[in-house]
Design a protein around this nucleic acid. Sequence first.
DNA 1: AATCGTCTCAACCGCTATGGG
DNA 2: GCCCATAGCGGTTGAGACGAT
Length: 213
Amino acid sequence: MRKPASDIKDLNKGAWSKQEDQKLIDYINKHGLLRCGKSCRLRWINYLRPDLKRGNFAEDEEDLIIKLHALLGNRWSLIAGRLPGRTDNEVKNYWNSHIKRKLISKGIDPNNHRLDHKVPFLQNPPMSEDASEPFGTKVVEKNRPCKSTPHVYGDVSDDASGEAQSSYALPDLNLDLSIAIPSESQNNLKPFRQSYSSRKLPYDSPSTLLLFQ
DNA sequence: AATCGTCTCAACCGCTATGGG
DNA sequence: GCCCATAGCGGTTGAGACGAT
C-alpha cells in the first residue's frame, strides 16, 4: 500500500505544473532516458534501491522462503517482506529457478508442500541436508494452510483426508506473521491490502522523487 | 571453435487497488 | 460517485550466460 501523498512533506500533488513538465522534458533531453515511468520505478525497486542485499540467498533465507511459501502461497511480496533487502521479483525468481526444483527432487510438490506420491523414492524418502531427518516428512497437521485463508492455496480440502492427510509435508512453522495494527490512515483499507503497507517505500521511487530532487 | 540446449533473472505485461481532483 | 494517474502485484518472456557435445 502506498503511503498517502498527503503524508509526505514537500511532495507535489495533483496535476503537473508547467515547470514540472519542463523539468521532465529537460531531463529526458539531457540524459536521453527513453524509459517510461513504470519501467524506471521497477528498475529502482528491483535493482537500484540502496537497501537491497543482492547476491546469493543464504540457507536460512531459503528455508524461510520455503516456510513462508507453505503458509502464503505465491504471495511473493508478502514473502519478500519477511526477507530484508530482498525484492518480490528476486524471491519469485529464486523460487522458480532453485527452490522449486530442489523440492521436486526431494519428492515434494512445490505447489502444496506435500509429498508427491508419484515420485518413486518416496517409499524411502531422502534425508535432509543436515541428515537429521527426512526432509518434508514431518506431519504438522495443525499448521496446514487453513480454510480460513482459502486464497492461499485455493481448495485445500481436496485430498485432506485419509492417506493424503497423513503424508502432509508442510515444514514445522513457528513464524510470527501477525499484522501490525494499521495506522489511522489505513483503517479504511481492506485486510489483505493492509499487509502490504509496512514494506513499501513508494515515496522514494524514481517516478515520484528521483527526477525532481 | 562452433553449435545447441538449458538455466537464470531482469524486465515486461496486464491487471487491480488506491489517492486525489 | 466518477475518473484518471499511479503504485503494486503475480505471471510471463526473452536476452545473455553457461555447460555439454
